[in-house]
């Protein structure tokens, strides 16, 4: 399978710094007093490029002095070469962050994104959910029907993942038959209902392929009061997954033992809903007052 198109597009784009670029020329003046042009031995004009992703000037000048860049002769087909370089770069970048078989994000991307989401929650106060999916009985498919069939199932499953996933969520393949979904700006109660949907979806794909595969899912919410580090939070969700596994598999497990009414209200009733309830209650009070003054 090709790497997913939207995965590639979401990566940061690389900037090319050309000799004609103003800030570049300024730096060049410092490095080489005669300006932006580098002259070759034969006095043939050449342009020196450095591929950067927003380097600070000090870094850039270091690179220039070390001549770590691409020197291009003007007689070359410059444009073609640059385009190829950029294409290669994106391809390699995508390759390094996606899973080869399924096209989902890989573990490397996940580890990075998890840290980003934790920082985001600390900054914005909006919680995010993490869902850990482990397929039940998947090993027996590989063992009895062969790895080709197993791979086919995974590819079908992940194709569906990509179709059904909310555009803001990230689906990652963590290991062989383990998947993780990051759901930014999501409350636990919404996360749980999404987890139930995924659970049903996986069953559906399995039954279409006439395989006896189900899924165990663990899910938890990271909210602003949470002080865990990325790895610790992942462990917590992992424990939730094992709870599902130990309770007979084929189910969604989430932390629920500690929710009390006031917390529940905070977590589950949105400000708009609360507002509406309060307003409704206020009109009742008004009516009561009117009745009592009339009486």
């Amino acid at each position: 399978m090709k790497p997913l198109k939207n995965n590639v597009q979401s990566l940061p784009r690389v900037q090319l710094t050309a000799a004609s670029h103003k800030p570049f020329q300024n730096i060049m003046k410092k490095v080489k007093p005669n300006g932006g042009k580098l002259l070759s031995k034969k006095d043939q004009p050449e342009i020196f490029f450095i591929l950067t992703a927003d380097l600070p000037p000090e870094e850039l000048s270091k690179l220039l002095q070390a001549k770590k860049g691409v020197t291009v002769n003007l007689t070359d087909n410059l444009l073609k070469r640059l385009l190829k370089l950029e294409k290669d770069y994106h391809y390699l970048r995508a390759l390094s962050l996606t899973d080869e078989l399924t096209g989902l994000y890989n573990k490397r991307f996940f580890n990075k994104q998890l840290k980003i989401e934790i920082t985001r929650t600390r900054r914005t106060g909006q919680p995010f959910c993490l869902m850990f999916i482990d397929l039940d009985n998947f090993k027996s498919v590989n063992d009895t029907l062969g790895h080709t069939k197993g791979d086919e199932f995974l590819v079908n499953l992940c194709r569906l993942f990509c179709q059904k996933i909310r555009p803001t969520d990230f689906a990652c393949r963590y290991g062989g038959d383990e998947f993780i979904i990051i759901m930014p700006a999501t409350y636990l109660v919404d996360g749980i209902s999404i987890a139930q949907r995924w659970h049903d979806l996986i069953k559906q794909v399995a039954s279409q392929m006439e395989l006896d595969v189900s899924s165990s899912i663990g899910i938890d919410e990271f909210d602003i009061s949470c002080t865990l580090k990325a790895e610790e939070f992942l462990d917590k969700v992992d424990k939730e997954l094992y709870k599902a596994k130990n309770n007979g598999k084929n189910k969604v497990s989430y932390p629920g033992g500690s929710l009390h009414a006031h917390e529940a209200e905070e977590k589950f009733v949105t400000p708009a809903e609360k507002d509406a309830l309060y307003k409704g209650s206020a009109t009742i009070k008004q009516k009561r007052k009117q009745l009592s003054t009339k009486g």
């Binding site: 919404d190 749980i192 006031h262 209200e265 589950f268 809903e273 309830l277």
Partner: peptide, 18 residues
């Protein structure tokens, strides 16, 4: 009481969503 109303609503919502 208003709090009984919001908590009852929270219960209904959770039972529905989960």
């Amino acid at each position: 009481e208003l709090t009984s109303l919001t908590d009852a609503y929270a219960m209904v919502k959770v039972m529905y969503q989960v």
